Amino acid sequence: MVGRFWEWLRGKKALVDAFFAVPVLLVSLPALLGGHQAMAEPAYLALTAGLVAPLVLRRTFPRTVFAVVALISGVQCAAGALPVAANVAVLMGLYTVAAGCAFRWALAAVVVGELGAVMATLRYPSGRDDQRSTLLMLSAVVAGVWILGLHMRTRRAYLSSVEERAARLERERDAEVKMAMAAERARIARELHDVVAHNVSVIVVQADGASFAIDTDVGRARQALETISLTGRTALSEMRRLLGVLREDDDAKAYAPQPGVAQLDDLVEQVRSSGLPVTFEVAGSPPDMSEGRQLTVFRIVQEALTNTLKHGGPRVAATVQLRYACDAVEVLVHDDGRGAAAADDGRGHGLVGMRERAAVYGGDVRAAPCPGGGFEVVARIPTTEAM
């Protein structure tokens, strides 16, 4: 409630300036009501009104208001009229120019104020020592008001820069959040590609086998259908888990953890059941690896075997080798299929996804046809962070 009031009041400059002009008017009233000895009441009233009334627009037109009150005070001094309480309007105008205008205008205003101090000292004679003291006092007041105005201008500029910086940081934070969301969606897209491509390839191979064997070998056809059913359920489960991260209201614990190197045996068995002979070899002791690195290894093997299923051709066999070193894990997936002769529809993103996954952890992937036939995927993933 208070914040709304200040926001509303901030836009009402004339109302606020009128509020600060009221005390000047109140101080001038006793002299008016009690009778002013050195000046007729109409003249005193006109002078007071001429000095106080412009203050209502003090912040709206700071230079104009200062020029008006300074001119009125200068005419008053030249005419020999005694100073009045409303002459403080000159100092208020000086402060406003120093606080709200460019420095050159603030400098011009302080020169005018100092000139007024000199005029007042010379116009109202007193002893030499008193004149010196009066000039020093008036100059100190003018300089103090001017410095206070400059300080307020600097403070307002600082607060404005802080607010601008906060707004910029907020915009940058929002942009980073959007970038993170886009990166997460890209990761999910790669995950979905790996899941769908692999499982659909297995389903297609099994369906082809079942269609050929349904009349001659019912048992084998039944086994192929069971594999299709199991593969389909696995694909749906992984897709639900991946798509679930896009649902803010869903409980993330309801989804299975990401696959890792421990699930490679299940992956190989699944591929074998689809009719692709796969030899799986492991060398070395598995070091402690983060879940992200394990997922990268799993997806590389999965994508390589999926490519073998899709492009290897008939009677193809594959070999998967996992070598654990002290600081990295090396993955080798080799098949004896068509290799360079395999058709490419140009719509696959598996090799790009493998390289991106490996690059995240400082690794690399090399995928190319082998001389004499076949295709080979070689990947190296560091198991520790680079220092």
Results as ranks from 00 to 15, higher is better:
9 L>V: 15
11 G>Y: 01
14 A>Q: 14
14 A>N: 12
15 L>N: 00
17 D>R: 09
18 A>Y: 10
20 F>N: 04
20 F>V: 13
21 A>S: 14
23 P>C: 09
24 V>K: 02
28 S>C: 05
34 G>F: 12
36 H>F: 06
38 A>H: 03
44 Y>L: 13
47 L>R: 12
53 A>W: 02
53 A>C: 02
55 L>V: 07
56 V>W: 13
56 V>A: 14
57 L>Q: 04
66 F>V: 04
73 S>E: 08
75 V>M: 02
75 V>E: 01
75 V>Y: 02
87 N>G: 04
94 L>T: 14
98 A>N: 10
100 G>Q: 13
106 A>K: 01
106 A>S: 05
107 L>Y: 00
109 A>L: 02
113 G>R: 11
113 G>I: 06
113 G>V: 04
115 L>C: 08
115 L>V: 11
116 G>E: 03
119 M>Y: 06
121 T>L: 05
122 L>D: 07
124 Y>E: 07
125 P>M: 10
126 S>G: 15
131 Q>C: 09
135 L>T: 08
136 L>K: 11
136 L>W: 02
136 L>Y: 02
136 L>Q: 12
137 M>A: 14
138 L>Y: 07
138 L>D: 11
141 V>K: 00
141 V>S: 01
144 G>I: 15
145 V>N: 04
147 I>E: 00
148 L>W: 01
148 L>M: 09
152 M>P: 08
156 R>T: 14
163 E>D: 10
168 R>L: 14
168 R>A: 15
169 L>F: 03
170 E>A: 15
172 E>Q: 14
172 E>K: 12
173 R>F: 11
175 A>Y: 14
176 E>A: 12
188 I>V: 15
190 R>H: 13
190 R>C: 15
192 L>C: 07
198 H>R: 06
199 N>I: 09
208 D>I: 08
213 A>D: 08
216 T>V: 12
217 D>K: 05
219 G>A: 11
222 R>H: 07
228 I>K: 02
232 G>Y: 13
233 R>K: 11
234 T>W: 03
236 L>H: 14
237 S>Q: 15
238 E>C: 05
244 G>F: 01
244 G>N: 05
246 L>P: 10
251 D>L: 07
252 A>N: 08
260 G>H: 10
266 D>T: 15
274 S>Y: 05
278 V>D: 00
280 F>V: 06
284 G>P: 08
284 G>D: 02
286 P>W: 00
297 V>E: 01
304 A>W: 03
308 T>I: 06
313 G>L: 06
315 R>W: 05
317 A>Q: 10
318 A>M: 03
321 Q>E: 09
325 A>V: 03
331 V>W: 01
331 V>D: 04
332 L>W: 10
333 V>P: 04
333 V>G: 05
334 H>D: 07
334 H>C: 04
338 R>K: 12
338 R>F: 08
339 G>I: 11
339 G>S: 02
340 A>V: 13
350 G>D: 04
352 V>Q: 10
355 R>H: 12
359 A>N: 05
361 Y>H: 08
365 V>C: 03
367 A>R: 03
371 P>T: 09
371 P>E: 07
374 G>S: 03
376 E>S: 07
379 A>H: 06
381 I>C: 12
387 M>E: 12
387 M>F: 04
